[in-house]
């Protein structure tokens, strides 16, 4: 996004739509801010008054449990008023256009939209057309971007590995349809990871995937060599019906992460997954629940990272003293 719709004239975060166009300093600022919120969850009082009096609307045009819940918790802990709407079952099924939905909500004096939509570019479109005082946070748009997920993954990696510059990261599975992978690749490259490797059959890789700044492998056993961070992606059932893969079992045989295969990676490698996981399809239960797995840590970090992004996006409005 060369135009940098996301930043205000002072270079501060206004919307958070994609990792593209954000520099290392800004990503690090997000991680540092998240750090300051991370300890809060264990305290007796889990709230700060940063967004008191602000109204945040979660607009979910596509179903989600984890992402919506962590956004709700994050907003609540910042003392904002939160309204969650499942539009998938509401206005648009009555034929209302995306823009009309937004205009209606705008007139209810909201301060921020958190948007999830099944079409690539939807959050960008809303940010372009919404009133100037409203911030838009992309909670996943089509196959394009899921920047808060990527940042919580970066947060988790930094917590454990400290520094990105020596890290070799493998992202395994359905890269083609994954907004998570696209955002992770951008974030890892911006933060200076030594290598980002994608491992998948050709049917699950987009054309010219190497132009995203990755190396490519079609073989899990070869691809896992020297890897410090393993990110597994969820495999959707519909990939079988659209002839991208023959079967779950054959996929698991080739690309499923088992204890044996995990041994090929570096001994201190961590295993990540944006969830929800398909046990026995992309990952074996022993690995998902094993000592190298940080999957649940990712979920708890999601709250801190989303608090960070929300407070930063509101900060530029002078809302916070």
């Amino acid at each position: 996004m060369g135009d940098n719709l996301q930043l205000n004239s002072e270079g501060k975060l206004k919307h958070f739509l994609t990792i593209e166009g954000l520099d290392k300093n800004l990503l690090t600022e997000i991680l540092d801010t998240a750090e300051s919120f991370a300890g809060m969850s264990e305290q007796q009082v889990k709230k700060v008054p940063l967004l008191r009096g602000k109204t945040i609307v979660n607009l979910f045009f596509e179903n989600s449990t984890r992402t919506r819940t962590t956004f709700e918790l994050a907003a609540t802990r910042l003392s904002a008023d939160v309204l969650s709407m499942n539009i998938a079952t509401s206005a648009t099924s009555k034929g209302e256009s995306l823009l009309d939905t937004i205009r209606n909500l705008e007139s209810m004096f909201v301060d921020m939209f958190v948007v999830r939509h099944n079409i690539s570019g939807a959050a960008h479109f809303i940010a372009q057309h919404t009133a100037p005082h409203i911030s838009v946070i992309n909670a996943g748009d089509g196959q394009h971007a899921h920047p808060t997920q990527a940042m919580l993954d970066m947060f988790t990696i930094r917590q454990i590995k400290q520094d990105f510059s020596n890290l070799r990261v493998a992202i395994i599975g359905d890269i083609l349809h994954s907004r998570v992978a696209r955002s992770q690749i951008l974030a890892l490259n911006t933060l200076g990871a030594a290598e980002v490797r994608v491992i998948a059959p050709k049917t699950l890789l987009p054309a010219h995937v190497e132009t995203l700044g990755v190396t490519v492998s079609h073989n899990l056993k070869e691809g896992l060599k020297d890897i410090d961070v393993i990110i597994m992606l969820r495999l959707q059932k519909e990939r079988m019906t659209s002839a991208l893969l023959p079967s779950e079992s054959e996929y698991f045989k080739c690309f499923g992460l088992t204890e044996d295969k995990l041994k090929i990676a570096r001994p201190d490698a961590i295993v990540m997954h944006p969830g929800p996981i398909n046990r026995g399809v992309e990952i074996d239960s022993k690995v998902a629940d094993g000592p190298q797995s940080v999957i649940l840590k990712q979920v708890s970090n999601g709250i801190a990272v989303r608090m960070a992004v929300m407070s930063m996006a509101m900060q530029r409005q002078g809302a916070l003293s």
Binding site: S120, G121, D141, Q143, R182, A207, H208, V209
Partner: peptide
Amino acid sequence: HEGVFATRYGLPSIP
């Protein structure tokens, strides 16, 4: 077009 742009922005593409 099934190329660099569609891959980057996650758009359904036509080869």
